[in-house]
Amino acid sequence: MAQQAGIPKRIEKETLKLSQEPPPGINAQPDSGNYRYFKVLMEGPEGTPYQDGLYHLELFLPEGYPMEPPKVRFLTKIYHPNIDKLGRICLDVLKDKWSPALQIRTVLLSIQALLSSPEPDDPLDTSVADHFKQNKRDAENVAREWNRTYACKS
């Protein structure tokens, strides 16, 4: 990928690494018209209610990146206590635990890990979190149903 005018070296390096060594189960491509905007496809982790799902996310690098975290949200509907109905994600590395040492790759792997281990005690969607706390099996069944309905590759 040739250096495009105005692309910060850091973003260029991360973008190149994402295309050459994609994290397992994750594909992140920059938009052709905006190098700060990425279209992300994430496979639901095996052994979770999200298994076999293919989730669309968008990731945006703000002007302040890497001093401020990327903005990431799910575009595919998902039933998860740490992801709200608008697709916003409650994850420490996207907020107070962000560090410029982290990269797009780290953030995406952290989101994938969050799918494997929901944190109902630090919820973004309290009704989903309550469901997970009161009846985890039933909540996981709903998550599987949403996965089949909204995220499954047909």
Rank of each mutant, 00 (worst) to 15 (best):
96 D>W: 03
62 P>I: 01
128 V>L: 09
141 N>S: 13
49 P>W: 03
89 I>A: 00
82 N>Y: 00
3 Q>Y: 15
105 R>S: 15
75 L>G: 04
72 V>P: 02
3 Q>R: 15
57 L>Q: 03
38 F>E: 09
36 R>S: 11
96 D>E: 13
129 A>Q: 03
30 P>H: 12
140 E>W: 00
44 G>W: 04
147 N>E: 05
94 L>Y: 01
49 P>S: 02
120 P>Q: 07
72 V>D: 00
137 R>A: 14
146 W>G: 01
47 G>V: 07
40 V>T: 07
61 L>Y: 04
147 N>R: 08
29 Q>K: 15
71 K>Y: 01
73 R>S: 08
100 P>R: 08
87 G>D: 00
126 T>F: 12
14 E>F: 08
97 K>E: 12
18 L>C: 07
55 Y>W: 09
24 P>C: 06
49 P>C: 03
25 G>R: 04
118 P>H: 00
8 P>S: 10
75 L>R: 12
80 H>L: 01
45 P>F: 05
110 S>Y: 05
128 V>S: 06
2 A>Y: 13
93 V>K: 05
107 V>D: 01
36 R>N: 11
11 I>Y: 07
2 A>M: 11
94 L>C: 02
11 I>E: 09
2 A>F: 13
96 D>Y: 07
117 S>Y: 06
77 K>N: 07
111 I>C: 05
55 Y>K: 11
77 K>Y: 06
17 K>R: 15
108 L>E: 08
83 I>Q: 00
116 S>H: 05
49 P>M: 03
26 I>W: 13
99 S>I: 09
32 S>Y: 04
40 V>R: 02
95 K>E: 11
152 C>F: 13
71 K>S: 08
98 W>I: 10
56 H>M: 10
55 Y>Q: 07
120 P>C: 04
23 P>S: 13
59 L>V: 07
68 E>I: 12
47 G>C: 09
64 G>N: 03
87 G>M: 03
139 A>Y: 03
134 Q>C: 11
13 K>P: 08
39 K>N: 15
100 P>K: 10
82 N>H: 02
18 L>A: 06
114 L>Y: 01
73 R>A: 08
123 P>Y: 09
61 L>T: 05
65 Y>P: 06
30 P>G: 09
151 A>F: 05
154 S>R: 14
147 N>V: 04
146 W>T: 03
95 K>I: 05
110 S>T: 08
78 I>M: 00
9 K>D: 14
68 E>L: 05
57 L>F: 01
58 E>W: 01
44 G>R: 03
